[in-house]
Structure formats: C-alpha cells, structure tokens
Amino acid sequence: MKYKKLYFTAGCVLVLCFIGIYFTYNPTKYSFFPKCPFHYLTGLDCPGCGSQRAIHALLHANLADAIRQNLLLVLSLPILLIHFGYVLTSALKGKKYKWALLYHPLTPRIMAVIVIAFWIVRNTPYYPFKH
C-alpha cells in the first residue's frame, strides 16, 4: 500500500515534468526529442508518428495542428482520460472500478482496425491531414 502511494506520486510528478517539457519546447525545433525508429528506417509514418508534436500543439490549445500531426492521438485522448478517471477513482476509493466498454468484445477489435487503417491511410497521398 505504501509503495502504491509512492508510485502514484512519482507518476504524477513525471507526468507534470513531461507536460512542462512538451509545453516549453517544440519537438520540431529541438533535436533531443527521440525520433521514431520506424520512420527513420522506412521513411513512412507509424501510427504513433507525430504524437510528440501533437502533444505540443494540444498544450498550446491548437487542436487543428494536433489533428494534422497525429489524428489517432487526438481520437484516443477521450478514451485515455476516461480510463485514467476510473484509475484515479479506484485509487482514491480503494475499490476496483473498471470501465465496462474497454471489456466489450468488440472494442479492442474496432481499435485494432482503426489503428491499422490509420497506419495505412496516413502513408497514402489520399490522407487529408498533411503536416
């Protein structure tokens, strides 16, 4: 129980540090941000490419640029926020709460299809959001 609190606090501090870094520095202008190995090797975008730039854009309330950088990240954001809402409530109330939608048999399948479709489509000339 003691360790759990420690992990929780450390996690929160880490998240705040990352928010500070991604707010202050634009990943397109500084070279210390890690680059995607898939993009480096193939020249293609993977489903996660552009998420650092998208976070920078989101932290500056620029939704249009975030969508241009990584549509998938913007789409996943509500899911991530609701999930961590459940995690937080579980931690505070000391009782396990699970979001039933994540355990629906169709949810992960639909997500897998979306991720793979996004991966393919964003590398075609037909992808509407170019950065």
Partner: peptide
C-alpha cells in the same frame, strides 16, 4: 486486458508491439 496501455505504446513507442497488445486485448475479452 491491457487495452489502454497498448494504445499508449502504439502512440508513444512507435513500434508495432502496441498493435500486438491490442489484438491480445481482443482475445482476452
């Protein structure tokens, strides 16, 4: 089912391993 964690890996670790996670999440459910 590790679904959210798999999505995070897909978005931030740039490797197709997140997709393997999502497919396994489907199988868990």
């Amino acid at each position: 089912n590790w679904l959210v964690e798999s999505i995070l890996v897909t978005l931030f670790c740039c490797l197709p391993l997140g997709i393997v996670g999502i497919i396994n999440a489907a199988s868990v459910n």
